[in-house]
Design a protein around this nucleic acid. Structure first.
Length: 589
RNA sequence: GCGCUCGUGGCUCAAUGGAUAGAGCACCGGCCUUCUAAGCCGUAGGUUGCAGGUUCGAGUCCUGCCGGGCGCACCA
């Protein structure tokens, strides 16, 4: 619908320009500046279905008062009775567009014929987008926060596909680095323990029960084969960590594989599928990091220097080793507040170095756009990674980063404490088992990702109208129940007479249906899936309100057919919207 | 100290720079025994943290404060 109005305004502008209302030079500028006008949905209903500020924006250029220009535009507007669109000038020079009831009703057959495609568009055609999300370290099971990132990333990917982008999903596996050694050592610690050998907990280890499970599985596979490789765990290393050996690669791989299998299973139960699983190790192995550093170096983005310690922050006594010369990336040139280290003292790359090499790798794969979904605790890295990408590719704004805030679990109004230390750590798996994928997915998308989120376990699984997931899904199920009722009563399927739809509720419902494509496009472009969630709640409310006040299965077949057609269109849009969120649309509940 | 982020009715949150800032809970008032579920309809509730600025027009953009969250060394 919005396209129709944009088209009207554009043609009117062209006509004004070519009819010589404006001089040739002005006309060209006029048309170009015409791109700046907006067609939007007025908040105030009496202002019509759409409104444009074209006359306000272009009045200075035209040398006319806004209202005068609006008059000219209006006169040149190719609308007539048949178009079903009426326009008028209002306020300081807005042009408002009203769709006739007849014109609005044509949406119903349009939705019916487009079916699942209604809401999809082609504005993103030609874009190749890589969405990287989750990327949880393979050192333990996914927790609720990872779940939010997973759902957000997947919904963004779905939205981008819906506007015609070519989308791929990628998971970056941090299977290199110190935390992996800690994982391996944690497994060996439990391994010795399970085999009844003397053992002292190493200084750093993962305490979760899953580590013991991995250790048992390792025993099942390899028996006592690794015992002599972990003698050192019989000694205390709290004082001197130098005796800690690196765990054997076979053990580490076993553990990573085990954890990743769990993670994949969790993702699978949320119906999230990745196109690529990118291993940090392969990046190291294939020389990706050296390549990235060389690339930076060649363009003078690297220097050796000394970093100032951050001010106002306590420096742990053991950590003071300042004034050390290190290899730095000149991120300050691109607005970062400090240069960032690329190599550690021992010459091995920092995590940051690996990360920019990874993003360089992504950029070289030919995507027109990269989207990353990170936890808010990584917010401090956005600028430096973007800066590095800009330095390496010369492209600004190649990478969009969406940050997701914390999830607070509540039950019965009380907060469920999540604490690794206390062992009351709530995994995503537990929440999925408790409430199901639909509830988790929908609920995680009920807030903008930058805002904290309360997840009420009791409410999320309740079958009540206070539960937004239930409320929306139930609206969809009701459409199907009407069909069942129709058959039960042996009423004939008739086409109905759409002109019988005249009530305010009916018109409002149709208008809402027309809003769906714009909502999808806006959500995709701004990477804000919660807009769809809000939209669906609004639509479901309008649907339920209508259902409660009007008898859909009216005695009069013409009216009944028309109402059924409207309700069916609403059901289609709800199904399409839920699909964008990855939530099922049940036919009965 | 610095960076990111958020600040909107009592509560939880919406609002591509547009006209009179919207929902849902809760509250209050009314209706209801009807296609699937104790539901439905309505009223009221606001100086958008504060102060400036840009603009024809600011919750939205800029600057400075105040407050919450997250982060800040060769950890990933």
């Amino acid at each position: 619908m919005r396209e129709i109005v944009i088209g009207l305004v554009a043609r009117s502008l062209e006509r004004l320009a070519t009819e010589g209302v404006l001089s040739g030079e002005l006309a060209a500028a006029f048309l170009e500046r015409g791109a700046e006008f907006k067609v939007e949905r007025p908040r105030e209903k009496s202002h019509g279905d759409f409104s444009t500020n074209a006359a306000l924006v272009l009045s200075r250029l035209a040398g006319m008062k806004p209202r005068e220009l609006a008059q000219r535009l209006l006169a040149a507007m190719p609308t007539d009775q048949a178009s079903g669109v009426r326009c008028e000038i209002a306020g300081p020079g807005f042009i408002n567009f009203h769709f006739s009831a007849e014109r609005l009703r044509t949406l119903i057959p349009e939705i019916a014929s487009r079916g699942r495609a209604y809401g999809r568009s082609r504005s993103g055609v030609g874009q190749r987008v890589l969405v990287e999300f989750v990327s949880a370290n393979p050192t333990g099971p996914m927790h609720v926060g990872h779940g939010r990132g997973a759902v957000t990333g997947d919904a963004i990917a779905r939205l981008l596909s819906a506007i015609g982008c070519e989308v791929e999903r990628e998971y970056y596996i941090n299977d290199a680095g110190a935390q992996i050694d800690v994982l391996g050592r944690s497994v060996l610690y439990r391994y010795r323990e399970c085999l009844g050998r003397e053992v002292v907990a190493p200084p750093d280890y993962y305490p979760g029960e899953y580590v013991t499970e991995i250790a048992r599985a390792l025993i099942d596979r390899d028996g006592e084969r690794w015992l002599e490789r972990c003698d050192y765990l019989a000694r205390d290393h709290a004082e001197d960590k130098s005796g800690l050996e690196r765990p054997p690669v076979e053990v580490v791989d076993f553990a990573i594989t085990w954890v990743m299998r769990e993670i994949r299973a969790d993702l699978e139960s949320m119906r999230i599928h990745f196109d690529h699983w990118f291993s940090e190790r392969t990046l190291h192995a294939e020389g990706g990091i050296d390549r990235a550093l060389a690339h930076l170096s060649a363009h003078d983005w690297i220097h050796e220097g000394v970093l100032e310690p951050p001010k106002g922050r306590e420096v742990a006594a053991s950590e003071e080793s300042d004034n050390r010369v290190q290899v730095l990336f000149r991120s300050t040139r691109l607005g970062d507040d400090s240069d960032r280290p690329l190599l550690k003292a021992d010459g091995t790359p920092t995590y940051f170095a690996a990360d920019i090499a990874y993003h360089f790798h992504k950029a070289q794969r030919g995507y027109t756009r990269l989207v990353d979904v990170w936890g808010a605790d990584h917010g401090g890295y956005v600028k430096r990674v973007q800066a590095a990408l800009e330095a390496m590719t010369g492209q600004k704004d190649l990478l969009d980063v969406v940050l997701t805030q914390m999830v607070n679990l509540t039950q019965g109004g009380k907060q469920v404490r999540m604490s690794k230390r206390a062992g009351t750590f709530v995994t995503l798996r537990e929440v999925l088992d408790e409430t199901g994928s639909d509830a988790v997915r929908f609920w995680f998308l009920t807030r903008s990702s930058g805002a904290g989120l309360d997840f009420d376990l009791d409410l999320a699984k309740s079958r009540s109208n206070d539960n937004p997931v239930f409320y929306v899904q139930y609206a969809h199920a009701r459409v199907y129940s009407l069909h069942a009722k129709l058959k039960e009563r042996e009423l004939p399927e008739v086409e109905g007479d759409l002109s019988r739809l005249t009530a305010d509720e009916e018109m409002n419902l149709i208008r809402l249906l027309g809003l769906f494509p714009e909502t999808v496009e806006g959500a995709a472009l701004s990477r804000e899936p919660h807009r769809v969630t809000y939209y669906l709640s609004d639509l479901a409310a309008a649907f339920h309100g209508y259902y409660n006040n009007y008898r859909i299965l009216d005695e009069d077949p013409d009216l009944r057919g028309a109402r059924l057609a409207l309700v069916r269109a609403a059901g289609q849009v709800i199904a399409n919207g839920l699909d964008l969120l990855g939530v099922s649309a049940p036919e009965s509940m």
